[in-house]
């Protein structure tokens, strides 16, 4: 117990703790939407495409997260464009942007002169190296997401459930979809430092699957998912510190373990 209290006196750990809180709320809410709408694969495409932006930022020498946002939004719009306008099948469009982004990232990084020290932390995440400015951005994103979902909760729910009905009722469905896909892109990018590009899908889906064991109510799903994400991230953070293993992997392993145990208990009770 003393070891844990001592940990909280370290500056890096305080920052990691805050990052875990912010990541849990944003991924809990946005992930619930993604899972309910069955757009996990689109989110995967956006996430991986952002690697291209990180590579470009390394090459051109600007903030990697800015590059990631750029490519994430570009991929989100690109997938929509490929599917709707160019009439390419949706899953193929996603795969094209997914792999194109990764490929560009690799090319840009290969062209970058010298050593790229943080590359691994973008791919696999390192919550212990989150900076103050990243925390501020995460704080702002969380505020925007919470405000958006509180203000438009019913409309978001109804549109996600039956888009056609919402359109018939005259809701600006296309506009809402663009706003939400932008929030998804931002959530993915700002949480890259926590679990990394390759593992971020886990924070968007596993806590939601766990919460879904207990509720079928969208509002409760948002809250419970954030809760399970928080338990998983914090436990993962401690495991990572005490066993000295990479934080991203430790967090995901904890999330899956919690889900598996609770699912098993549920199975036993039936």
């Amino acid at each position: 117990m003393n070891a844990i209290i001592e940990l909280f006196s370290y500056d890096f750990f305080q920052k990691a703790f805050l990052a875990a809180v912010f990541a849990s709320i944003s991924c809990g809410i946005i992930g619930s939407y993604i899972v309910s709408r069955r757009i996990v694969f689109i989110s995967g495409g956006i996430t991986h495409a952002s690697f291209g932006g990180i590579g470009l930022a390394f090459l051109a020498g600007f903030n990697p997260l800015l590059g990631a946002v750029l490519f994430a939004v570009l991929a989100a719009l690109g997938i929509q464009f490929f599917t709707k306008v160019a009439e390419i099948r949706e899953d193929s469009s996603i795969a094209i942007w997914w792999s194109l982004g990764m490929a560009l990232g690799i090319i840009f990084i290969y062209l970058t002169p010298g050593y790229t020290p943080n590359l691994m932390s973008y791919l696999f995440g390192n919550i212990l190296t989150v900076t103050i400015s990243e925390l501020w951005w995460m704080f702002i994103l969380n505020t925007v997401i919470i405000a958006f979902f509180v203000l438009f909760f019913s409309k978001i729910l109804f549109m996600a459930f039956d888009e056609e009905f919402a359109r018939a009722a005259g809701l600006p469905v296309a506009l809402f979809n663009y706003m939400i896909i932008t929030l998804i892109a931002l959530t993915v990018v700002l949480n890259i430092r926590v679990v990394g590009i390759i593992l971020i899908l886990s924070l968007l889906t596993i806590p939601q699957a766990t919460a879904n064991l207990y509720t079928n109510n969208f509002k409760k799903l948002l809250i419970l998912s954030s809760g399970f994400a928080f338990i998983g991230t914090i436990s993962g953070l401690f495991i990572s510190y005490f066993l000295n293993i990479p934080s991203g992997a430790a967090i995901i392993f904890t999330l899956v373990t919690i889900f598996a145990l609770l699912r098993f208990f549920q199975f036993l009770r039936k």
């Binding site: 309910s36 019913s154 729910l157 056609e164 919402a166 009722a169 005259g170 079928n216």
Partner: peptide, 20 residues
């Protein structure tokens, strides 16, 4: 055409009719 696994309650489905 309705996604039967969507997490929404009967009450909320009916409430969504008021969008009209």
């Amino acid at each position: 055409h309705i996604d039967k696994k969507f997490p929404i309650t009967v009450y909320d489905v009916v409430r969504s009719g008021l969008l009209m």
